[in-house]
Nucleic acid binder design. Structure first.
Length: 867
RNA sequence: GGGCGGUUAGCUCAGUUGGGAGAGCGCCUGCCUUACAAGCAGGAGGUCGUCGGUUCGAGCCCGGCACCGCCCACCA
């Protein structure tokens, strides 16, 4: 290390991430470490496709955790020498992005309709160019080692072609079709949405009972509903086939109040005879359940609520044009006036809302495009059943299989402008042409005898998740360029939050199998959900969000990464600022421990030159840490990886080993310097996947100290692997005993009130090796010189002698306390050993251990008796 | 209505195959010891949600219950 570097290291007594991170990141990017060649095979290589964040997005805690988890594994694999690719990109996020730009327009007093489709889409692109890459820059700040030179976007040219190819092929297979079917209508985005974009909320409503007179009698059928306005679209009343009360009425009719329509009374098993009166009004146009019943019974489908949320002409003159809400009040008034409203009671039930816009879903019959999933699902089910795709933790496997087993058609068309416009063209006489491009559609039309000039393209765009479903192979160049695909598909794992297991993960598996013929990834790791410290969901609107970039600014990226890994042990986890602080402290600890070594070690080649017991001990403990951390990382157990590393670094390396070897280090002993440098290098490499910045920064000094060989950066340093030959159980046992003894001595000193700085007179019992106890003496501040005097206390072979430093009275009290403790321990052990059941049934070694303890207690008590 | 996860120190969480309860933070006592005072040494603090069972022995295994949370579900 040159004098200037040395001076800077001396001066930097505290690790300052803000100064370091930018500089280190630059060097990684310039070095091209994240941009692998498209060589090798998927089996040799290691690859991951990032779950693409929305272009509109800013990095939130979920991204930060997800990114950290991926980066930790990816960095480890890269260090293991694998050709490693982490593909990065963003999602156009249909509704979300369109909503942002629409809001901007509204603020200017304009609207997308005034602008027109082409101008609007252009505007969204402009917005995307301006703000779209901010999240990518934010991933860099986290230290994510993505291939920033291969960034993709779900609407870039090649990607769009891939989407159209997939659509066209599924259409040709008959899996994509157009149908008039009940959909979830999102009044907010004025579009259909899929089942998975609906969230059910518990809501307090009113359940109204309405009398429907039975035709030709005085009787009435009372039905119950929370949406009386939909009665205008009723086309039947249903009862359970076994319901004795109504058996006679089935086949007859009742009269719909206000409207006068004759409603057939039908029998259907889906009616619960226990609920209300057991009679159910059937509204096929506005209720999913009724829709199905209606289709089976061939009932008329009347639509009284339109896509704008207002009542249609079919609702009748009195109500047409009203908002559904107003219509409800009007219908209730009218029913009251006719004496048909029998009752109302408060009623709590779950109601569908749009996940995106938060508006209440209006179930409507609408002409939409659907994708049949059952056939695609079969191989995707098999892939997970056989663990070809492994889902971790395992409990999610069954959830996936359950859901896939009863998968329903997917509504894939959206009435938006921002997205992949359907590659569907309509000609005259209801001709439909699906093609990968407009040119191809024209050709097809011409071939079918349709004038291409008459073609009109479908207005709708595809569900965002339709394009995300092909992410893992589309970003690798499918279908046109296959170099990346051949080298990196299937990818190795996917990390995700549980909530998108169905929305995204399942669909990627289906599409990968269908179009590439292999699953998109081997493992799916479902990571924790980070809650606010209060235990509530982290959300901007609730004000409970914590911005990861703020945390990076205050504590550093390594600290945040460590904190996130350490806290992410279970499914739901509260954000722990303490864990992030712990990470910051750890970075600083590593920094200062490294300063101690680097500023004092002579220039020697790092090597485990374990010349003394304590050296063998730390080398052995390091090997165990290497084993534990790499195992934990390999099995997606990040909390243990982080905390086990912390324990090794802080307690074993810093608190004990560094303290033990300081004198040798200051003396310039080459062997201990070599060992220390080696341990440091291994330790930095071990921590690097979790805390890349601080380790890389320290390594830049170490590489200097270690001589010219180490020109490469730590990011591509060999990841440590367990070397079983360096594990030394004897050394571990021995040093652990010294540590225990030292702690006993310190504790005793404290309890009897010995001043911290004072050195106590002591001696080692005859026949005991003095060497280890020299070390203990230093750590516990004892002196064996001039060992005269009365022994006051004994700890194993070490006896403390009476001196002016020790208050004899407090020692006596302490001894008395110890006697009492021992007596009770002896009692406990004796009664346990007197229990025949224990002695006979417990394993021999457990019994033996207990006997050993008892003997030791008795011996200690006896010894105390002397003083 | 089904399924899943959780309940351990004041707080946030660990506890591998059942053999005397752990960490970080906070708290108390004492130390500016030439890597780090955002540090060091020591300490206090827990009937492991509850009831029952299996066992010589249960935080851990089995069953019931309570509370918290999540996911799925077409009972109006």
């Amino acid at each position: 290390m040159d004098a200037e570097r040395r001076k800077s290291l001396e001066a930097r007594t505290r690790y300052d991430p803000s100064e370091v991170e930018k500089r280190i990141l630059e060097r990684w990017l310039e070095g091209g470490y994240f941009h692998p060649p498209a060589d090798g095979t998927p089996a040799e290589n290691f690859s991951v496709a990032i779950p693409p964040p929305n272009v509109t997005g800013a990095l939130h805690m979920g991204h930060a955790l997800n990114g950290t988890v991926q980066d930790a594994l990816i960095r480890m694999k890269r260090m293991e020498g694998r050709n490693t690719l982490w593909m990065l990109g963003t999602d156009h996020a249909g509704i979300a992005t369109q909503a942002v730009v629409e809001r901007e327009l509204r603020e200017e007093g304009a609207s997308r309709h005034e602008l027109g489709r082409d101008a609007f889409v252009e505007r969204v692109w402009a917005w995307k160019e301006r703000y779209g890459s901010q999240i990518v820059e934010q991933y860099k700040r986290l230290g994510a080692s993505c291939d920033y030179e291969r960034e993709r976007f779900t609407l870039d040219e090649g990607y769009v072609r891939a989407v159209y190819r997939v659509f066209a092929q599924l259409y040709e297979k008959g899996l994509i079709y157009r149908d008039n079917y009940m959909v979830n209508w999102d009044v907010g985005s004025h579009s259909a949405i899929s089942d998975l974009e609906v969230e059910n909320r518990e809501l307090e409503d009113v359940l109204y009972s309405i009398d429907y007179p039975v035709e030709g009698t005085e009787a009435v059928l009372t039905v119950a509903t929370v949406r009386p306005e939909t009665m205008l679209a009723d086309t039947a009343v249903a009862v359970h086939p076994d319901d004795e009360r109504y058996r006679e009425l089935v086949g007859g009719h009742c009269i719909l109040p206000l409207v006068g329509r004759r409603l057939p009374i039908i029998a259907d098993e889906r009616v619960d005879p226990e609920f209300g009166t057991g009679a159910l009004k059937i509204t096929p146009g506005h209720d999913p359940n009724d829709f199905e019943i209606g289709r089976e019974h061939g009932l008329e489908e009347i639509v009284v609520i339109g896509e704008d949320g207002r009542m249609t002409a079919a609702a009748g003159e009195r109500f047409a044009g009203m908002h559904a809400q107003e219509a409800q009040a009007a219908v209730l008034d009218a029913l009251r006036a006719e004496g048909r409203l029998r009752g109302e009671e408060p009623y709590v039930h779950s109601v569908p809302f749009s996940h995106r816009t938060g508006e209440r879903i209006e179930p409507l019959i609408s002409l939409q495009w659907f994708c049949r999933m059952d056939e695609l699902a079969k191989p995707a089910i098999a892939a997970v059943e056989s663990d070809r795709v492994r889902i971790v933790p395992e409990q999610h496997k069954r959830v996936y299989l359950d859901w896939m087993g009863r998968i329903r058609p997917w509504c894939i068309s959206r009435q938006l402008w921002w997205g992949h416009r359907l590659p569907v063209w309509y000609g005259p006489r209801e001709t439909v042409f699906v093609a990968e491009s407009e040119a191809a559609a024209r050709e097809a039309a011409a071939a079918a005898g349709v004038d291409p000039a008459e073609l009109r393209r479908d207005e709708d765009v595809l569900d965002t998740w339709f394009s995300s479903a092909i992410w893992p192979f589309a970003i690798l160049g499918w279908p046109e360029e296959d170099a990346l695909l051949r080298a990196f598909y299937p990818t190795d794992f996917l990390t995700t939050a549980r909530e998108i297991l169905f929305l995204w993960v399942s669909r990627m598996i289906m599409m990968g199998l269908e179009f590439v013929g292999d699953v998109p990834f081997d493992d799916v790791y479902v990571h924790s959900v980070i809650l606010a410290p209060s235990g509530r969901r982290m959300s901007k609107s609730l004000g409970t969000g914590i911005d990861p970039l703020d945390e990076i600014g205050v504590h550093g990226a390594d600290a945040l990464r460590f904190g996130l890994l350490a806290m992410s042990s279970t499914e739901l986890v509260r954000y722990s600022a303490d864990r992030v602080q712990q990470g910051e402290d750890l970075a600083n600890k590593m920094w200062n421990a490294s300063r101690l070594v680097l500023l004092n070690a002579p220039e020697v080649e790092p090597a485990p030159r374990a010349v003394r017991l304590e050296d063998r001990w730390i080398v052995s403990r390091l090997e165990r840490a290497i084993d534990a951390v790499s195992r934990s990382l390999g099995s997606y157990d990040f909390a243990h990886a982080a905390l086990d590393f912390y324990g090794f670094l802080w307690s074993e390396l810093c608190d004990w080993y560094l303290e033990i070897v300081k004198p040798r280090l200051y003396d310039g002993e080459p062997e201990v310097a070599a060992t220390l440098l080696w341990v440091l290098e291994q330790t930095l490499a071990l921590a690097h996947p979790m805390m890349p910045f601080v380790t890389e920064e320290i390594y830049s000094y170490l590489a200097g100290a270690a001589g010219g060989e180490r020109r490469e950066m730590l990011v591509v340093h060999r990841f440590p692997a367990l070397d079983a030959a360096l594990v030394d159980e004897d050394a571990e046992r021995e040093i652990d005993a010294w540590i225990k003894l030292t702690r006993q001595l310190r504790r005793w000193r404290d309890l009897v009130g010995v001043a911290p700085g004072s050195v106590l007179s002591a001696r080692v019992a005859a026949g005991e090796a003095a060497a280890p106890h020299e070390l203990v003496a230093r750590l516990a501040r004892l002196s064996y010189d001039g060992a005269e005097g009365e022994p006051l206390a004994a700890f194993g072979p070490v006896e403390i002698l009476a001196s002016a430093e020790v208050d004899a009275e407090r020692v006596r009290r302490r001894v008395q306390e110890r006697r009492e403790t021992l007596a009770s321990e002896i009692g406990r052990a004796e009664s346990k050993l007197a229990n025949q059941g224990f002695v006979q049934n417990a394993p021999a070694d457990v019994v033996e251990e207990e006997r050993g303890k008892l003997a030791a207690y008795r011996a200690e008590l006896e010894e105390l008796g002397d003083h």
